[in-house]
């Protein structure tokens, strides 16, 4: 067969051609997938709409929990009473499932303001405020219990309610989505 002769005559060049063609086709195919995968990521409008939001704290009364949205995520802003702060602080941190002191969960000197994501860390339901054994939050879906610092104290949730990035612009205004630059 003609094939045999060519093969013997120029083995390396023939192999090189096949490998080069196969490699080029593979690279091309992989690159073609890229824009399609990229299109699945949050689009430019969504990203721009995810800009930090400012919240005016003046209308939030003591004991009140306000819900706001940032990037489509629910966020609780809780104006804690002195009693609730004390309850959050007087806890043996080592005994917690996800050990974290209350001071790590609020901004220094702003103990009355607790800002946490509003979805249970178990499977994402919205816990009810001022409810449960510790009067923090109680999740009606699977019975997770959170204290007044948003830490998990019972039920299936594995970790505390996470804290979104935020910072105080003034005493009565905070900006969610942006940590203080200093």
């Amino acid at each position: 067969m003609a094939e045999t002769t060519t093969h013997v005559a120029e083995p390396t060049r023939r192999d090189f051609l096949y490998i080069a063609t196969g490699a080029a086709a593979a690279v091309g195919g992989a690159t073609l997938v890229w824009p399609f995968i990229q299109s699945l990521a949050p689009d430019a409008a969504t990203k721009a709409a995810g800009a930090p939001v400012e919240v005016d704290l003046t209308p939030i009364a003591e004991g009140q929990i306000v819900k706001i949205f940032w990037r489509g995520n629910l966020i609780f802003i809780r104006h804690r009473s002195a009693q609730e702060i004390k309850a959050a602080q007087d806890v043996n941190v080592a005994s917690l499932r996800d050990p974290q002191a209350d001071s790590e969960r609020v901004k220094n000197g702003k103990d009355q303001w607790l800002v946490v994501y509003g979805n249970c860390t178990h499977l994402g339901c919205v816990p009810l405020g001022n409810a449960g054994e510790y009067n923090g939050w109680f999740c009606p879906c699977h019975g997770s219990v959170f204290d007044t610092s948003g830490r998990v104290r019972g039920g299936p949730a594995p970790i505390n309610l996470p804290i979104p990035p935020y910072s105080f612009v003034s005493d009565t205004k905070l900006i969610i989505g942006q940590e203080a630059t200093a």
């Binding site: 824009p35 399609f36 990229q38 299109s39 990521a41 689009d43 430019a44 409008a45 969504t46």
Partner: peptide
């Protein structure tokens, strides 16, 4: 990325063309 609604279809196509990553290409 498209919305098959008479009030939003045109706008959703423009959304694809402008905002969706590589939407114009697709």
């Amino acid at each position: 990325y498209y919305t098959p609604n008479a009030a939003m279809a045109f706008q959703s196509v423009e959304h694809i063309m402008r905002d969706v990553n590589y939407g114009w290409l697709i």
